[in-house]
Design a protein around this nucleic acid. Structure first.
Lengths: 118, 118
DNA sequence: TCCTTAGTTCAAAAGTTATTGAACAATTGG
DNA sequence: CCAATTGTTCAATAACTTTTGAACTAAGGA
């Protein structure tokens, strides 16, 4: 059970830009970038939309080649395709994330503080 | 007769990304970047669409803060807002233009060779 | 096995964007 | 003034995107 992803060389600039041009998806990518290296499942994005809506936006991100989704049991572990994006479009992701961080029109990346077991 | 443009600090990242996510507009921006410093009027973009359609796309670019349009007689001289974009979103425009140049899925920037007077 | 959890799929509705042609406005040159 | 040039606006349409709830699948635990 693997989900379809484009190869690195199939990632298209206009599609990536259009996908990042949606505020919900930009927020998701910002959050992923802030937790880089940590695979997150879909429930951890529920602040950004309903379950159904997230399924839609996460599929868009995956199909554009921005994220990778790995099936682990009933979970989809989502990661940023940072290495692939940097190889394909050097500097693009960094400048987008830096720009999003500076944009006062966008919400700060949420805490999502993890409750650690006592 | 001046056309409305956002101030530099009003330029919004998701809007810029969405605007650049359209292939026609990305081509226009690439062309503008390749002719940087040279103000172009709308007719010089006719390769990218019909007159009406260009009016639509150029308005989107202008309203997003990506281009500036100056009224000179019956012409609108179009320029990239490179300085403003670089100030607002450092590195973004450069990485987008570099990425577009590398994307084999996108057409090369057209020649539009100017006929110099003899 | 049954129940729960995680996420997808489907169809409908609502909203947005892109494209077109016809009509229009404004400036320039003859 | 008249005609040409430059570009906009309008209305219609087509196409696409986003959002929603209900139904569904698949894996895991009791």
């Amino acid at each position: 059970m693997t989900l379809p992803h484009p190869n690195t060389d199939q990632i298209s600039l206009p599609i990536v830009l259009a996908v990042l041009g949606d505020p919900t998806r930009l927020a998701i990518v910002r959050y992923l970038a802030s937790k880089e290296g940590v695979p997150l499942n879909c429930s951890q994005f529920l602040d950004f939309g309903s379950k159904t809506n997230l399924s839609y936006h996460l599929a868009k991100l995956r199909e554009a080649g921005v994220t990778r989704a790995e099936v682990v049991g009933t979970n989809r572990m989502i990661t940023l395709r940072r290495t692939d994006l940097d190889a394909r479009f050097p500097g693009l992701l960094d400048s987008v994330i830096a720009a999003a961080g500076d944009d006062p029109g966008l919400p700060a990346v949420g805490g999502h503080d993890i409750e650690l077991p006592a």
